[in-house]
Design a protein around this nucleic acid. Structure first.
Lengths: 338, 338
DNA sequence: GCTTAGCGGTTAAACGTTTAACCAGATAGT
DNA sequence: ACTATCTGGTTAAACGTTTAACCGCTAAGC
């Protein structure tokens, strides 16, 4: 690979100093340079196919115009949807984004943070796994701008934008209650992630507010590693027996997919016997045969706000903004199969 | 943000030259430096929380350990799945990946290529839109290592890894023929993208090889911008009338989703009246009520090979490797609804 | 006639690394 | 005793930018 053309090459060709070339190519000091010479420089640059070396520029200016994005898994639709929105918003401001997946593993997210910092990203947008509080503190101490998305730690004051998960769950369960359901269950993950905790809290609060009993055995927490089997078991215990649930809240969409597959194979009529509320939109339920409701996250809003917050924080290290957006309850009815 | 600690700071603290610090921290010239001093340097580095500035290193070494990834849309599951595999493979070799979405727009992909090159990426993995041949030539001329995935241009000799789309379509249609179907249609996009052209070619070849008539009106090409309406219309013309098709190949999974939604609302029995073969796995059909077949791309293989090819090309500019992987025909039967 | 300001540029240092070349002193080989 | 090699470091240039400071000249202000 023959060396690329640099400012020096242009300067030589035109017979001026590299400084001048830099000035005109960056449109600085416009008044202090003759129109004619400026044009010659621009022409030469174009003729020689000059492109500025961002690495060199970054070293000098201490700014990379790069933001780091850490999600749990970029292959997951929630993450990749978010990534796309962030990409677009960042691009409008000439920023580029580096992504990486933490796999809900605090060890890994820690490493990723280091790599990104080593690469001198200007800021970070992160969805952190559980038990990563110290990483947030580390970032604060490094004084690097960042904003947490989806997940955050209530006891640490940082920029964040996320769903109001408590409110959303509450809204979902109230929908079931208003539809006359008396015995409402919940299936969620057995995780410390605040987001999921909030959903459980919302569920419980709804029952309480409407004076429904909330026995512990109505909420089933499954381990993600044995997800499928655990969900099946949870469904069995909730739905068989003398007193089956007539309403069910899934705390995350993978749970709903697994759960509904299982339910489909049982002699249960949806929504007559059992009404379903799910978290998040998912393609997987596109063709599900029965009606159900789901909480829709304003993904676009989340991505846009997160990016804007970050860019603001990068430009002027300013106050902390914490945003919790409202979820929307959407009813999905299947197109009638003939 | 107080300035970060640099080699110079460590050198000062320990009382040696920055060169020496660099040597020991990079484990170079191990024999030429005293154990004791080396340890003192390492200790100081650790104590001061030193982290190397990759930007500065990159400027000097002319290597960023970054690869650029361009897909059509990172939010699309095929792209994000691929991205994840590439990320993992890259990470194993200490590479980081920058992604961007071209939206099937050659103008945009051109810009993205420039941005990535300006950022001095070491190489590129790209799924190009149609009419982007000149970009491939440009990359070749820049002598930057790259590998095309999913899409490529047969008339330009470059590294690529993709599906054998011709073979896969042929396989899919043969499956229909062997199942006794005589009148097989295809719905695809009206695009020049080679990948899709190959699928059409495979379809036609299968009919020909089995001496089935292949009237032009059995293949419907829809425009992506009016996808839904166009698919509906295509379905109508293929399935109504005196001589409806009894087998159908969808050239891409979005087409299948739209098409099957439409078909579900018609008095058509799947698979008795109509047998379906689809391209690509998609979550959206997870709960589809009837059996169908689909061509499964070896996504993991594609991602891994693409990354490895690229890393090889980066390390030693070597020969060109063109890989076309075989698709697998998978039968999907719904779990019986009760 | 003397200072001041504007004009159109140049000089040179700096950003944080890497790395080839050098160097002084000690040891070894003949 | 003289050269050669090894040991454990240092010097300094370079990567490609940016940018503050400077410079010589002309024209204007008073």
């Amino acid at each position: 690979m023959e060396r690329k053309v640099s400012l020096k090459d242009i300067a030589q060709k035109v017979g001026v100093s590299t400084a001048l070339v830099s000035y005109v190519l960056n449109n600085k000091r416009e008044n202090r340079v003759s129109k004619e010479l400026a044009q010659r420089i621009r022409d030469a640059a174009a003729a020689m196919n000059y492109r500025t070396n961002q690495v060199a520029r970054s070293l000098k200016t201490n700014k990379t115009y790069t933001i780091g994005l850490i999600v749990s898994d970029i292959a997951n639709p929630f993450s990749s949807g978010l990534a796309r929105i962030i990409e677009d918003e960042a691009e409008q401001h000439q920023y580029t984004v580096i992504f990486s997946s933490s796999d809900e593993n605090a060890g890994k997210s820690g490493k990723l943070i280091d790599t990104l910092l080593d690469r001198q990203v200007d800021g970070l947008i992160i969805a952190l796994p559980a038990f990563a509080e110290h990483q947030v503190l580390y970032l604060q101490q490094q004084q690097i701008p960042f904003v947490l998305v989806d997940r955050y730690f209530p006891e640490i004051k940082t920029n964040h934008v996320a769903l109001d998960n408590y409110g959303a769950a509450l809204k979902g369960v109230e929908y079931l209650i208003k539809a006359g359901r008396k015995r409402i269950g919940m299936i969620t993950y057995d995780t410390e992630v605040f987001t999921l905790q909030e959903r459980k809290r919302g569920y419980t609060a709804a029952l309480k507010q409407h004076k429904l009993p909330a026995p512990k055995n109505l909420v089933k927490e499954v381990n993600i590693k044995v997800e499928k089997a655990a969900v099946e078991k949870a469904i069995q215990t909730l739905l068989s027996g003398p007193d089956p649930v007539d309403g069910l809240l899934f705390g995350a969409n993978n749970l709903a997919v697994a759960g509904l597959k299982c339910i489909s194979a049982m002699p249960i009529k949806i929504p007559d016997d059992l009404m379903i509320v799910n978290f998040d939109e998912t393609e997987a339920l596109e063709f599900f045969h029965a009606p159900f409701a789901y909480i829709k996250q304003p993904l676009h809003e989340i991505g846009r706000l997160a990016t804007r917050l970050l860019l603001e924080a990068i430009e002027k290290r300013n106050s902390i903004t914490q945003i919790n957006l409202e979820g929307e309850l959407v009813l999905k009815v299947p197109s009638m199969p003939y």
